[in-house]
Design a protein around this nucleic acid. Structure first.
Lengths: 115, 115
DNA sequence: TTCACGCGCAACCCGATGGTTGCACAATAG
DNA sequence: CTATTGTGCAACCATCGGGTTGCGCGTGAA
């Protein structure tokens, strides 16, 4: 699933799809939540508070990285991951575009995602 | 187990997770898109313009229904499905809550989803 | 009544994926 | 140097899930 966050024709859908796929897994959502509160964390530390092994966490972090939601930076012998929630706006734009006609709250957000 | 019905992170996580899982599949996104433009459609008609069989479409519609994104109403011998994008706001709230601290555009949407 | 259309259910196939264990390697601590 | 800690990679397993075919039933048209 190699999806670069590009703005080409259909690129929005790909980016949004990658985000949806990444966030579809509950463990991955827990990872994102933990990352959202600690700002930066290692795979081992994350595995300490989740009911899965470090390798599983590493896989999830890699998956989130593919979607552009997470970036890792090696510092010495540990790798610190941090949240990069930019692609979330692509996913939100997709949803707003799909449902704006039916849901008033969504319609109200129409132009607010661009700037 | 504390279940916060509205504002709790865990409460919306289920609904949001269901939405993410539903929208993770590309065919399902196509179904949503088609539904967003036609307002109401049958499974057979949908299968006519998608590269999958009617049964596959029916499965997808059922999956979308489980997530609360689609509702079907039987009219005579055909079933008309229509988009019910309400749960989308739950998913968007999850994303905003997760990424608001890092992304300025997301932060600006913080209070707008509740009203 | 007869026939075609639309639908739902069930079985089946197979690739994708979340999770595990095991191991080899890099980097800090003693 | 040695021990420890943190990673990354690979193999392996079990389950999930998207897709198909096949069948039986209800409904509407001829």
């Amino acid at each position: 699933m190699r999806v670069e966050p590009q703005r080409g024709p259909g690129g929005r859908d790909d980016a949004a799809g990658a985000v949806f796929a990444a966030l579809a897994d509950p463990t991955r959502r827990q990872v994102v939540r933990a990352l959202a509160e600690r700002e930066t964390v290692t795979a081992s530390a994350l595995a300490g508070e989740l009911p899965v092994t470090r390798q599983a966490v590493a896989k999830h972090l890699a998956a989130l990285g593919e979607a552009g939601l997470v970036a890792g930076e090696r510092a010495g012998r540990e790798t610190r991951y941090r949240l990069t929630p930019g692609p979330l706006t692509d996913a939100m734009a997709w949803m707003v575009d799909a449902g704006a006609r039916w849901d008033e709250r969504l319609a109200r957000l129409q132009g607010r995602l661009g700037g």
